[in-house]
Design a protein around this nucleic acid. Structure first.
Lengths: 166, 166
DNA sequence: GTCCATGCAAACCTTTTGCACTATA
DNA sequence: TATAGTGCAAAAGGTTTGCATGGAC
C-alpha cells in the first residue's frame, strides 16, 4: 500500500510532466491521478469512476480516459489488458517497477512477481531475430490458492485427442 | 506454411470435435476452419472475412465469430490480443505448439519463438504463490529488423526524470 | 485573452444477441 | 422431422470524438 506522502509525491511528478509538456494542471487531472496513485490495485475505469463518486467528485468519463492517456504517456502509469474486455491501470510507484502478473481465471485476482530471467530471454531473442525489444509482458493464468481450496477446476472441453499427439 | 493435406487433416479433426459435441458439421464451419488452417498467419476476423470473399464464399460475420468460438474451444485454434483493439486467431498446427510472440510496434508484424525457461518460471512462481498455472502468455514488443533499417524509432515521451531514480 | 480542458451526448468499433428462416443428421 | 445453425440487423460494451462552455496560465 502506498503512503499518503508517496501519493502526493507522485501527483506532483505528474504535475511536473504536465508542465514539461506545456499542459495545464487541472483539478480533474490531479484528482484522477490521486485515485490511481493511492492504491496498489489494478483499477478499471469503472472502479476509478466509482472511487471518484465516493469521494464526492463529479468527473466525466471522457476526462478520466483522457487523463489516463496522459498518465500512461508520462510513464507513471501502466495500462493492462487481462482479457476481461476492458483495460486496467496500475501506477509504477511499486517497489517492483518491473514485474509480471499472475491472474486467477476463477476470481480475477492479480498477483505480481519478478522474473529476472526474462532479461536474458529478451536479449537472446533480440539477437536471434535482429529485433530491438523495448518492453515485454508475461502473464500466467491459472487458479489461486483460495480458488483451488474452494474446489474450482479449470474447464477443459477440447478434442479428446490432444493436438500434440496427432 | 501448411500443406493442403495438413489443412484437410485439421478440418477433419475439427469435424471430429463437432461430432463428439453432438454439433452439426455445416458447410460454413468447414470453410471458416479451412481458411484458418491454411495459413500460418495470425488472422483477424476482418482478414478471415476478406479471404472468404476472395474465395467467393458469402458467410455472415456472426457465423465467423461463432465458428471461431468453437475452434478455440476445440483447442485447435488459439485466440490472441496484441493490443490492436481486436482479436487474432492462429491454428495450432504449427511445429511449435507452444510458442511466444515478438510483436513489432511499427509494422504490426508477428514472429514466434520458444522459451523453454518459462516452464521453470511457471513452476517456481506456482510454488511461491500456491498458484496452479494452466497457461501463460509472453509477448515482447519492439522494432523488427526491417523497421529498424527503415529508421523507425520507439517514441518516448515520458517524464524526463525516470521514475526509477525518484 | 488565448489556449486548452471539461462534460455531455453522439459516434465508433468490435463482438454478441434476437429472430425468422434454413440446413443438418 | 426435430434440432441446431445461419444471416441480418439491432444491441451491447468499452472507448473516442465533436462541440459548446468553462478554467488554467
Amino acid at each position: 500500500m502506498s503512503t499518503a506522502s508517496d501519493t502526493s509525491l507522485f501527483v506532483r511528478l505528474f504535475g511536473r510532466y504536465l508542465r514539461e509538456q506545456g499542459l495545464p494542471i487541472t483539478q480533474q487531472r490531479e484528482v484522477v491521478a490521486e485515485v490511481v496513485f493511492s492504491t496498489d490495485e489494478h483499477l478499471s475505469v469503472d472502479e476509478i469512476e466509482e472511487t471518484l463518486r465516493e469521494r464526492g467528485e463529479r468527473i466525466g468519463k471522457a476526462t478520466i480516459y483522457r487523463t489516463l492517456d496522459l498518465l500512461v504517456r508520462s510513464q507513471l502509469v501502466e495500462e493492462h489488458d487481462f482479457g476481461e474486455g476492458f483495460k486496467r491501470y496500475e501506477h509504477r510507484l511499486s517497489p517492483q517497477p518491473v514485474h509480471e502478473h499472475l491472474i486467477c481465471v476463477e476470481c480475477g485476482g492479480v498477483w505480481e512477481f519478478q522474473s529476472p530471467e526474462l532479461q536474458e530471454v529478451e536479449a537472446r531473442v533480440g539477437r536471434q531475430y535482429d529485433f530491438q525489444p523495448t518492453r515485454h509482458k508475461l502473464e500466467i493464468y491459472g487458479l489461486c490458492r483460495a480458488c483451488q481450496e474452494a474446489g474450482a477446476q479449470v474447464s477443459y472441453q477440447g478434442l479428446t485427442c490432444p493436438i500434440e499427439s496427432v
